[in-house]
Amino acid sequence: MTRAILKRLISMLLSLLAASLAIFVMLQAVPGHPADFMLGLNAQPDTIAALNAELGLEGTLRERYLDWVGGMLRGDFGTSYTYRVPVAGLIADRIWVSAPLAVYALVLTLLVAIPAGLLAASRRGRASDWGVMGVTQLGIAVPNFWFAMLLVLLFAVKLRWVSAGGFPGWSDPAQAIKALTLPAIALALPQASILARVLRGALIDTLEQDYMRTARAKGLSRRATVVRHGLRNAAIPMLTILGLQFSFLLAGAIIIEKVFFLPGLGQLIFQGITQRDLIVVQSVTMLLVFAVIAVTFAVELAYTLADPRLRRA
């Protein structure tokens, strides 16, 4: 068991290393030098050199990579070229929008998907199954940002229940949650649709297993068989999808933040890209990748616990 965890931990660290290298190499290819961009066309070479030094842009690629990674390990994400402030601070401000949004959406996803999937699987072939399958089929096909626009159109433009976007900050938590509700719903819809379908499929697969027949033969009712033997086995494929969904929620959040003008990490990345603020883009991306890898690691741990067959690996 400990060995299995250790093995996964090492593989996670290797993934992080590879990911940091990939991001670093890719962003070094960005055309346009930040110092040129910031100081304008008429800048003196020595001013540029001084700014490069200040921004940590001198030295070989290898030194710069090691500086960057070493800094992140100490919590120093570098200095923004544009704002001339520590990137860590910028991230800290924005993460309080993005992270709650993703978690909010995840909670909504689970709240909708689990009952829907259970209902459809247990009523396979009947009206409620067809209903769930139809709605989720549509839910998967709807781009979340368009669904977000429709929500804005309905609740902000027509009904005027909420404002069309923006974020009031956490000083008034009720207002903050209100501002995040439409974005979270927009994010959750496609993910809930996917999850409900996966859960239904996994449950139906499980129902066809031999051990379900054994359970019936020893006198368990159909319902007890599903609850006691089906759910835990179906949870294993579901966990895998949940892990992947976190990645989609993060990416989706970036787009959704744009629809609702939310000052989150997505907005930070887009600003970074347009302003050639390399270090911001680089660090925020790395942070997102770290989050995804960490969640994948947690999911793997979870199903090592759920599935005794994996414990000896």
Binding site: D210, R213, R232, I236, A306
Partner: peptide
């Protein structure tokens, strides 16, 4: 299970793995 019980051919898949 009480009056009538049954065992099947394939022992490898007849038990819940978890």
């Amino acid at each position: 299970g009480r009056d009538i019980a049954m065992i099947f051919q394939e022992p490898m898949t007849a038990l819940n793995p978890v």
